[in-house]
Design a binder for these strands. Sequence first.
DNA 1: TATACATTTAGAAATTTATCTAAATGTATA
DNA 2: TATACATTTAGATAAATTTCTAAATGTATA
Lengths: 90, 90
Amino acid sequence: MGFQESLKAMSDKTRREILNLLKNGDMTAGDIAAHFSMTQATVSHHLSVLKDGGLVMDRRDGKYIFYELNTSVIEEIMAWLIELKGVDKQ
Amino acid sequence: MGFQESLKAMSDKTRREILNLLKNGDMTAGDIAAHFSMTQATVSHHLSVLKDGGLVMDRRDGKYIFYELNTSVIEEIMAWLIELKGVDKQ
DNA sequence: TATACATTTAGAAATTTATCTAAATGTATA
DNA sequence: TATACATTTAGATAAATTTCTAAATGTATA
């Protein structure tokens, strides 16, 4: 779970859409999958890539597994982008 | 040249190192390639991916082709990240 | 405890990506 | 203009990624 995995996770359109969905609140894997036209197994794979990238966290609640955004990693990526842009060139 | 291509370009370690190099000023393709242990052709491919992602621009100066950072795309990515993080949660 | 439901995991196929070598292109110069 | 230099493009191969179906796991409930 590092920078590489985080950016890799963000580089896929489906996974970015998942992140956008989670902005509005935590969701179960099933509810997330319902937003896409791929199988639940495929969405589950994407969720695991997002988890490896530290962009989401999951918790089980009975039958359901809830996913939520983890924004701490986002800060790290923003810091790199700001550095890249250059403090002087603002 | 859109969001997708920009993030895909950034998701590779070699390409991020190229971006980091260019922070310190414009460089020729050859000078960039010299920093890596892969062939010039491979580095040239990475440069073309970065160009497609709008992260660098190139200009020919005689025999040489200079590459430079293009930071306008970076702003767009930061805007998405800020949005993702949520204005309320700051 | 048997069954159903929510979700993940395994394994395979198709697509994309990274990398290489060899050839092509563009520019400068002897 | 022939040659050399800087770089890209083409075509091939290997590795990684996306996606699927089928099977496994974990939890709740009749």
